[in-house]
Amino acid sequence: MAVLIGKQTRAIVQGITGNQGSFHTRLMLDYGTRIVAGVTPGKGGTTAVGLPVFDTIAAALEKTDANASIIFVPAPFAKEAGMEAIDAGLSPVVIITEMIPARDSMILIEYAKNRGATIIGPNTPGIITAGESKLGIMPGDVFKPGKVGLGSRSGTLTYEIAASLTHDGIGQSTCLGIGGDPFTGLNFVDVLKLFRDDPGTDTVILIGEIGGSAEEDAANYIRDTKYPKRVAAYIAGRAAPQGKRMGHAGAIITGTEGTADAKMKSLREAGVLVAEVPSELPKLLLHQVSPLQ
């Protein structure tokens, strides 16, 4: 068991003929992901990475039974690519593309919400259900099947933490990057809700970073709903200076709100196991049973 993707996932790759698109399609196939087609406008009738390419998703669905999508198209076209996937009833729609205008993301996320589709990203490493399916650009071999669900705002740091969990024998159910942009389809509260109802997940790890309020909102949700599963967290950016950009639009602080310390404090107060350094996470999970005890 897992959330959002698994063996049942049959994906379309939008932008399959681009560099990133074809490279990662190959890696996703290698991981065992079922990818049924690619879509690139104007390239219908050709093949890429051994898969049939269609001009539109509607055309792809006449020949295949896709139910999810991953998007690699350039930022100026990402909004409509996402809408096309949603219109075709695909979900989740994973948007790897970065630097999409915030207004486009805002409109796309609302579009998905009104039509019951789930958007992961934009600017995300994607989602992986260990041992079953990978819709993303993460290195598959650092993940192994298990019962820890993981939601993250960061890419490489997710791989770092997944690798250390795997190294210590702690497997994962589903790991997903919510995305580094100001507007994302899922936030930490959404991630917690997904894992709450998943019998295959007994622990949730949140990997946050400075800026925004996603971690504080998660802490409030955990406390207010007496969240039934064990939650652990790591927040990057304690050493960040105030008011300086750290590479992500989201990673910025300008006061007490949004600092790593403030986020760690509110998570701890909600009963979350908070690691001081990434390598402490597996130790916390191995030695602590429940935050509420």
Binding site: T156, E209, I210, Y234, G237, K244
Partner: peptide, 26 residues
């Protein structure tokens, strides 16, 4: 981003670099 210390840091991925800064500070 320039900071006020003396250990130069190079990494890949904003989150990992931030975590690296945190570790060095730790």
């Amino acid at each position: 981003v320039e900071l006020d210390g003396d250990i130069g840091i190079i990494g890949n991925g904003a989150g990992l670099v931030m975590a690296t800064l945190d570790l060095v500070r730790q």
